[in-house]
Amino acid sequence: MKIEQAPPQLNRRAFIKKVLKGSVTGSLLLIYPMGGGDALDMLQPSTMPDMPEQIPGIRGKAYNIHERKFAFIVDITRCIGCGSCCVADKREYNVPDGYYRTWVERYIKDFDDQVYVDCPNGGLDGYQKPREDIDVQVRDTFFVPKLCNMCKETPCTQVCPVGATFTTPDGFVLMDSDRCVGCGYCIQACPYSSRFLNPVTHTAEKCTWCYHRVRKGLLPACVEVCPTGARKFGSLKDETSEVYKILKGPGVLTVLKEAMGTWPALYYLGARLEVI
């Protein structure tokens, strides 16, 4: 019986070459789908033909993170408490039930200067009924939409022990859920109760002013859906933007809890003294 010789390409040298090639190709295949290439394409205007640019000067230009500044203005006199903003916010981020990145409060002030505030389901269902549990003569009543104040002096980022929350050079206070350990310090530190612990991921979460939309030249979701223009957002480096004009004009703008020295970038138009 003749023993067949192994074919020459299966000698040790060829075998090692093949194994090496295989492992290199395999590891490349593992890496390839992870790449950020697709996401970078998203930033190009050509891939978002359906969505017109709402914040001028962002698309198709280099984004210098140190040169940008934005502001958010809530016009209390125009809020009708429909809750569109809350619905949009919940849908944009799939916020779990019972937690709110933004919400709308209803204030009622009587003639004894007592203030009653309620916020059924964060305003998610709108305000369908007048408040029935109090029997007072209403002197003043209004809605106050609340969201992250994007403070310049941020109490929440200062207390984070792991650097999971931070202020970006363009003024947004964001979360890094990969680093967050869910200790909840930031939730206690925030004077505006803007943060919560996500029951699914067990990490802190907050309103980002839709940073992912802003960087693509789109308005935050709540601003986009607001039917009355009660929520306004824009660049402070753009002299034609509505927020720039309002901030530069003579209107009375206030910030919440000014005495705490947090220097919010969220301004309120028409807010009464009682709003906290």
């Binding site: 950020g36 996401a39 998203m42 930033l43 359906d50 969505m51 017109p52 709402q54 993170i65 949009a88 849908r91 944009e92 650097g163 999971a164 929350t165 931070f166 970006t168 964001l174 979360m175 890094d176 990969d178 680093r179 980002t208 940073y211 992912h212 939309r213 960087r215 693509k216 789109l218 979701a221 986009e224 859906v225």
Partner: peptide, 19 residues
């Protein structure tokens, strides 16, 4: 004192609302 890449990761969050 934070991961600068976290900013880019936030930018890459999918957009759910159009106009």
């Amino acid at each position: 004192h934070y991961r600068a890449n976290a900013i880019d990761e936030e930018v890459q969050r999918p957009i759910r609302h159009g106009t």
